[in-house]
């Protein structure tokens, strides 16, 4: 028996077998350890086929027939994952209407089902971040206080302390987050669209992402501004206008009235 084993070890096939075993082990460990992509909506072959048709009719002129991208015009979409597609298409950023410093959000061109189909097809091109599950973006499960800490460190410098948005360079800007859906917020962090950096799951964990969403949803609550009108929450510009035009105007009017003769 021992002899037989020893003989087998010297066999010509032993290295190949070992190699296969090792690969299996690595694959198995990876399957267990790797972050499992949200298995939220499994896409059917029909959906994928529809997505491909939609893509070739609406997106291929810039991104290429098989989404390989065109130099200087549009990036390759191989491996961007369904999250990026859902974000770009559901916010109306894609398809882009005109070339501009950055693609602005506009009314989406595709229905929710069409968007899903597009995302499903692009996801088949290569592995990439996929859209979050409903539970991952449920603000009621998040901790808004922790979300504020994370938001303040990573997001507030561009998106403003409560997500009202702000300017970047050369016509680019960080948009307001007041009308972005929780799923879109999650996808933006995960994929880093346009000028925005990526915040992968090691940097902002899925739980922390949900906390950020909870914090942003708090800002939309009816009593989010107990101090009264927040004037767009964009800081000194609108507040300064209010003080200089309305406040100073009232003072000048009062001074004129005091100095005028009674009739």
């Amino acid at each position: 028996m021992v002899k037989a084993l020893a003989g087998a070890r010297r066999s010509r096939f032993a290295p190949v077998l070992l190699m296969l075993l090792a690969l299996l082990a690595v694959g198995g460990v990876y399957a267990i350890a790797a972050p499992t992509p949200a298995a939220a909506d499994t896409s059917s072959p029909d959906q994928i086929a529809e997505g491909q048709k939609l893509f070739q009719a609406n997106c291929a002129s810039c991104h290429g027939m098989s989404a390989e991208g065109r130099d200087g015009i549009a990036p390759s979409l191989i491996g961007v994952g369904s999250a990026a597609v859902h974000f770009q298409v559901s916010t109306g950023r894609m398809p882009m209407a005109a070339s501009a410093p950055q693609a602005p959000a506009k009314p989406p061109q595709f229905t929710a089902a069409q968007t899903k189909a597009l995302a499903a097809w692009v996801a088949t091109l290569g592995p990439g971040p996929s859209s979050p599950t409903a539970e991952q973006v449920d603000a009621s499960l998040g901790d808004a206080a922790n979300g504020m800490l994370v938001f303040r460190t990573n997001c507030a410098m561009c998106h403003n302390a409560i997500g009202a948005g702000g300017a970047l360079s050369q016509g680019k800007f960080a948009p307001s987050l007041f009308h972005t859906t929780p799923q879109q917020i999650y996808e933006a962090m995960l994929t880093g669209p346009q000028s925005m950096p990526v915040f992968n799951d090691a940097n902002i964990t899925p739980e922390a992402k949900r906390d950020v969403i909870a914090f942003l949803m708090e800002q939309r609550a009816d009593n989010a501004s107990p101090g009264g009108a927040n004037l767009g929450a964009i800081g000194p510009v609108s507040e300064g206008m209010w003080v200089w035009i309305v406040g100073m105007g009232a003072l000048i009017a009062a001074a004129v009235w005091i100095g005028a003769k009674s009739s």
Binding site: T153, N154, G192, P197, V198, F199, N200, A202, N203
Partner: peptide, 9 residues
Amino acid sequence: QVTIGSVWH
């Protein structure tokens, strides 16, 4: 963990 395109504070 620091992938291309990500930014860490």
